[in-house]
Design a protein around this nucleic acid. Sequence first.
DNA 1: TGACACTGAGACGGAATACGTCTTATCGTC
DNA 2: GACGATAAGACGTATTCCGTCTCAGTGTCA
Lengths: 203, 203
Amino acid sequence: MDGRRPPREAGTTELRVLEAVKSCCERWGVDKVTVDDIAKASGVSRATLYRMFPGGKEVLFEAHRVHELDRFFATLLAEVHDTRTLEDLLARTVSVAIRELRADDHLARMLATEPGAVLSELTVDGLPRIIRVATAYMVPLVDPYLPRPQARDLIDVVARLVISYFLAPSADLDLADEDAARQFIAPFLRFANLPTTTTGVRT
Amino acid sequence: MDGRRPPREAGTTELRVLEAVKSCCERWGVDKVTVDDIAKASGVSRATLYRMFPGGKEVLFEAHRVHELDRFFATLLAEVHDTRTLEDLLARTVSVAIRELRADDHLARMLATEPGAVLSELTVDGLPRIIRVATAYMVPLVDPYLPRPQARDLIDVVARLVISYFLAPSADLDLADEDAARQFIAPFLRFANLPTTTTGVRT
DNA sequence: TGACACTGAGACGGAATACGTCTTATCGTC
DNA sequence: GACGATAAGACGTATTCCGTCTCAGTGTCA
């Protein structure tokens, strides 16, 4: 914009671009954002942008979505990594995830201004990606307690439930509360053929 | 959108379209709004829209700006029409106008998201229109006190000052306060070669 | 019933914009 | 001075948007 070239550490530019995607989407909505908008907002030339994200707009938006998911699960992981039973892990995961979703201003804004796109991202088109990332992050934590296939199934269903209860909270049940979440996930632990208070069996 | 045809009174459709322009501009910004957006938002077909505003987008936006100005001055007039001296009229006009501008949510949102366009509308491109509308509304009220040419000049300068003090409030002077406004406009009354407490001379 | 006004839906061509690629010049680093 | 990375912007293509037009459906009034 002003010609100066600020010193840039590795990966910083990419982050700036992804943040620019975020703010541009808030400002204009997904459909109205152009590659130029993002380039200007991130202070990067269009050429550089295409160099960093070969494939253009679609790849760029995809990278942004993955980046947001990464941030979400990194934060989540920091809050649940030190649990010592499967029950604790799941209860914490569910309640922390719900709270994190509710505290996400960007998500709230996008839900308010572009419900269609966001809902699709959370329920139809984007769900496979969400479950994929969720699995990648959570499988290591569930591994000590469950065989891999069961772990993946459990993560899958928990992810779906968190999204559903975030989008349409139950009147009786507030999953942001860890105790409520604990009660809630008990049946799924039994479904996994495990005593609800087990410390886990290693595969 | 759903095919039904709601019963419409005369002029209602036009109002709906102008309101749609307003909300679309808030949502997407002036540059990103398309005629289709406005048509969908107002529940009117594109053909009808072009029939109502021959000339297309530019005429439509112009109509919207004039409409906003009309609403502004209609509200203003209701608050100042019963003053009995020129001093009262001007003091009330200035303070009410400042308060009305500050209370305008749409204006605040547009100023926040598209300062360039709005400032241009208030200071460069749009000012002639503002002064024209202000004159049309205010001249009848000033007529009892001043000859027509002086009235027009006075309205012109007051309009400019209101805009300036709205955009950049003085630290010492709050024109939203009617007494402060009264003090403020005194010099302009003297400039018009009239005692500040005159009840006016008919031309 | 039939003329009439009005509207929505959408086709159409031309203009404007956006996309993605590419070249060139510049800057910083080694 | 060679090299890599970047900004700026030209370029052709694809897409979107604009403004006009036609046509069919609907409500109104004689």
